[in-house]
């Protein structure tokens, strides 16, 4: 029983980070139909900014805020300067550009910060809470992770559901030309979409780094899991991304917790899950429309 609780808890915590990363991908896909492969590198870049601040003696919280702000700016700049010129061309062009950016940013991090492993501090303790004599896998830091992801989700939902800018962003996502005719500044909305996505992506990068090691490519595995989570959810649905992330986190945790030598099978399991879902429901678990397949 205790093992089940522990495995489930760590699955949920991992899953919430996957969910945040998947959400960042979905935000960009919805508004620009571009799969942003550079998401992971961008998040790694902002984590290294945070790390530099922490090394210079600043508090974790200041570093967190600065890193998220840097993510916002980075997302906006990438959209305006790099993605905008290739938009409207063949769809693959923009995707290849983000792939190139993925490699370029990673290389840039290595040049500036070095490519050795560095430890990244966690804001809260990493020892599990104890109840009587049993210690569970829930640590103060993982509570922080869950709360941070939850707050981000709630803020995003509020932005999209209840504000005029959110409405304009959704309108732009569903029909750029029509939105433009109605006076929506579509370009601005796309930039904002990328900026917000980069903030969420950065957050997932910072959360997964906390209490662990960072190096220029440390986000690579999260990219894979984030993609699987996003596609599980249908790539079009923010709710789908969140549920997909949590499900994937749980599934992977059960695999590594219960299957003999399972921890080596985690990556494989992620791909098996992806294949099964795509075979059974090609549009993902939360496909918003079945017509898209036709």
């Amino acid at each position: 029983m205790q093992q089940f609780v522990n495995v489930t808890l760590s699955g949920l915590i991992q899953g919430s980070i996957f969910a945040a990363f998947a959400l960042a991908l979905v935000l960009i896909w919805r508004s620009t139909r571009i799969v942003n492969f550079a998401q992971g590198s961008m998040a790694a870049a902002t984590s290294f900014i945070a790390l530099a601040l922490i090394h210079s003696g600043q508090s974790y919280w200041l570093a967190l805020v600065v890193a998220l702000a840097a993510g916002f700016v980075l997302g906006a700049v990438v959209e305006r300067v790099i993605v905008r010129p290739v938009e409207g061309g063949p769809e693959l062009n923009a995707v290849i550009v983000t792939l190139g950016l993925f490699v370029a940013i990673q290389a840039l991090i290595a040049i500036i910060a070095g490519s050795e492993f560095q430890s990244f501090p966690a804001p809260f303790g990493l020892r599990g809470f104890t109840f009587g004599s049993t210690t569970i896998a829930l640590t103060p830091n993982s509570v922080f992770v869950l709360i941070a992801v939850l707050i981000t989700m709630v803020l995003l939902v509020a932005l999209f559901r209840f504000t005029r800018v959110g409405l304009a962003m959704r309108a732009s996502a569903f029909g750029q030309e029509v939105a433009r005719l109605l006076g929506v500044r579509v370009g601005r909305m796309l930039t904002l979409g990328w900026a917000l996505a980069a903030v969420v992506g950065s957050l997932s990068g910072l959360l997964i780094a906390g209490g662990g090691l960072v190096y220029p490519a440390y986000m690579d595995s999260l990219i894979v899991f984030g993609f699987v989570a996003a596609i599980l959810g249908g790539l079009d649905s923010p709710i789908g991304a969140i549920v997909g992330g949590l499900l994937l986190g749980l599934a992977l945790s059960y695999v590594s917790g219960y299957v003999p030598r399972g921890s080596g099978l985690v990556n494989l399991a992620a791909l098996v899950i992806l294949m099964v879902v795509l075979l059974v429901r090609p549009g993902g678990l939360f496909a918003s429309s079945t017509a898209r397949r036709a």
Binding site: R164, L167, R170, A171, F174, V178, V184
Partner: peptide, 12 residues
Amino acid sequence: FAGLTVLENVMV
């Protein structure tokens, strides 16, 4: 806009 409610469509 397919993914917006009628009211939201008009609000845009």
